[in-house]
Amino acid sequence: MQTHRKVKYEAELDPSFTKWVSTVPGGERIRECFQCGTCSSICPLSVYMDISPRRLIAMADAGFKEEVLSSFTIWLCASCYSCSVNCPKDIKITDIMYGLKRRAIEEGIFPSRHFAIPILAKAFANMVRKNGRATESRLVVSLAWRVSLFRLLNMAPLGIKLLLRGRLSFKKEKIQNKQEIQTMLKALEANR
């Protein structure tokens, strides 16, 4: 085993990131966090996270931009809002997670190239942009294509059963006048 020198120099931190986090809607009170750990202990997924929500909040507030944006934590958040509801300082942790996810997408920083959740999020968004609705079967296939074909094969028996029962259809789902949603999304993007 090798020993690593572990020290963070102030020069490696990004003070603008600290400032930015406090402007994320819900992040206004992030400075008040007193690190009690309620968010981590109430979180049903924190046991799988590489950085616990409490630490993530502290790191975001301290300007650990690289570590925060490349963490699995922000992607594992299932938006159950337990942390936001229970936080004794009323910090909207879930909202901050969303803000961090958006920032990560904008900056193209992900925990790994094959990490499924951001890929799924992107595929989902693209599909909705195109058709106004998501077709689950196609979403699964496109996700598997980009992440792991092997896992698709593993899940094939379940998929076949669902297909036979009429619960899974490959028919493309779409809304009427789908160009309207594109117009809306474009208008939104132009506004940013």
Binding site: G37, S40, S41, I42, S46, V47, S52, R54, R55
Partner: peptide, 11 residues
Amino acid sequence: IRVEDTLIGMV
């Protein structure tokens, strides 16, 4: 009792 031991960093 479910708690994050914040000094250790584990739930």
